[in-house]
Design a protein around this nucleic acid. Structure first.
Lengths: 332, 332
DNA sequence: CTGAAAGCGCTTACAG
DNA sequence: CTGAAAGCGCTTACAG
């Protein structure tokens, strides 16, 4: 598996490696004669030359690699983001490294270190609780980073997110107008700011109405079981209730509970779920959900990162996108 | 963003870069005095040294990078595989590059080239129709590769797959014993060998029984629409029918059709679907499905690749795993 | 129009 | 026990 190098081309074509390099990079400035150019190109094709980007990276201190860290690449939400990031990155000449940290700050730190050692030009990060140290280290090194989906309370970084607070507020308002006796907010027991935003937005709107809001908060490791247990404890079918699931995983867990217990939507209970997933379409009732503009967000994150890479600026633009409430039939 | 190098450590510690390198790589053979060792380690920590793996890669001709090419990382099936591959790769010291080719051989070729230029140590590939040229080129260069999920008709490569033919045959046999009037096989109009195996296994078993098998084959770009249309044309509810969906995407499209048209399972029609996905759990009936041992497959693929990397062998072991038929309530 | 040379940050025989 | 030196495959001023 010995690969041809420009040295080989140079030797066979009877020119210097410098000339080969110039030709292969088709630099305009330095005029190389048509003849030697053609010869070099011919030889290069003959011996099946492929450039060694690692050598180039070392010389240029640019790897054209970017790293993406998400909670879990097998989660629909993140794999969709990853796909859009991949496409955009590709378009801009970057190759994508992907890592999952499972909400674990140690893994997160390991991944940033790994990526940094691999000399990625920048990273797109979905920070987790406790990842501040790892991120601060990157910031100190002036490493280009962009956050996605989530953001940090104490560190001002360029990032891409949605209007979590407002969309929750708005949906809650919508529900209040339908005169529910009870609203149930299903969320995570977490300190992640963007999730708290969802919760607070909902709360704030509900507060001034006087309607009871029950809150179900689960850990991240036994979502299905915890959601089932807590819905069983808290869902009172004698009241006119609407459940708000604040993530796709929670939504899926909740819908599964309803299916398993033969609870009809929206006859027995109404619901709204966050994020879009194919799964919602197999539920007997068309689920009303909140759609994030993932593609645009992904695209923007790569653009922000690229501009960071090309000229580092400490303080970042945060791009806030608007989520869309897609109303279907699960709220009555 | 100027990073410290071993040169910096050497200068500050007053030793040579060779010594630094030895210490940092804790080579047993070369005994370095405790004192200089400690000093080097101390300095290294102080100036926040992180190794430049690109330089190391260049010197060692090993990048500790592996590339994964799948059809689409946003597809549940592949994102689950990717996740397991990531975990195993990580464990073995590799970092993962991921690319999606959308069943497009040109994109596939571009990705292999890109990965090869980035000097990945090896690739895990889910080949697509028309990717033989790209793969042959890699084989000629003796590039370590392993196929996953899919395999190639004309090239014998190490790879990981399931017993597609047999599992289909077995399920068909199971269905025949339930005395259906009609079986519908839903698949792709494709030349991918592993999918044809699924089809042929089903056919072979059905043939000798005399039961009618209708075949619905769709393209890969409008799965939902095509499945809907064809089910509408072919599903005869007056007969006792069972539908066999040969992939998760087809299954989801089909289940959605049934939901949309209020066709009850298994009262009006029975079904079996390939692959597991959260979505199946939101369907009103518990869907019987075929489960692939993705984790084991992913793990094995990384192991096969690693052993390729460490000692290249042309002809490959193919590891065939057994899929499992998980029977629930969708077949009557 | 073309080449010799330095250097990116490492590793590793080899010599002492 | 430690260091000088070569070299991995590139790029790029600089000189001619």
């Amino acid at each position: 598996m010995k690969r041809a190098s420009i040295k080989d081309i140079a030797r066979i074509a009877g020119v210097s490696v410098a000339t080969v390099s110039y030709v292969l990079n088709k630099k305009e400035g330095s005029r190389i004669s048509e003849a030697t150019r053609d010869k070099i190109l011919k030889v290069s094709k003959e011996i099946n030359y492929t450039p060694n980007k690692i050598a180039k990276s070392l010389k240029m201190s640019k790897s054209k690699l970017i790293g993406l860290i998400v909670a879990d690449i097998s989660n629909d939400f993140y794999s969709n983001i990853a796909r859009s990031i991949e496409d955009e990155a590709m378009k801009m000449g970057y190759t994508l490294l992907i890592g999952s940290c499972d909400e674990n700050p140690e893994k997160f730190g390991k991944l940033t270190e790994l990526f940094s050692e691999q000399q990625v030009d920048g990273m797109i990060l979905a920070p987790v609780t406790g990842s501040d140290d790892a991120i601060n280290r990157l910031v100190r090194e002036e490493y280009p980073i962009v956050t996605i989906d989530r953001y940090l309370q104490n560190i001002d970084l360029p990032g891409v997110m949605i209007n979590n607070f407002e969309i929750s507020e708005q949906i809650c308002g919508h529900l209040l107008r339908k005169n529910f006796d009870e609203l149930i907010y299903v969320g995570y027991d977490t300190e992640l700011p963007h999730l708290l935003d969802r919760q607070y937005g909902f709360d704030k709107c509900a507060e001034k109405s006087g309607v009871t809001v029950k809150r179900i908060l689960t850990g991240i490791h036994n979502i299905t079981e915890e959601v089932h247990q807590q819905l069983q404890d808290n869902l009172d079918l004698s009241k006119k209730t609407c459940i708000y699931f604040s993530s796709n995983k929670l939504g899926i867990a909740g819908l599964r509970y309803l299916i398993d217990n033969n609870i009809k939507v929206p006859e027995n209970v109404s619901l709204v779920a966050f994020d879009e997933t194919e799964a919602y379409y197999l539920f007997p009732t068309e689920v009303s959900f909140v759609r994030q503009p993932l593609e645009e967000m992904a695209r923007e994150s790569v653009k922000l990162l690229d501009s960071q890479i090309n000229s580092y600026t400490q303080q970042g633009k945060r791009a806030t996108f608007h989520a869309e409430f897609v109303e279907r039939n699960s709220v009555e």
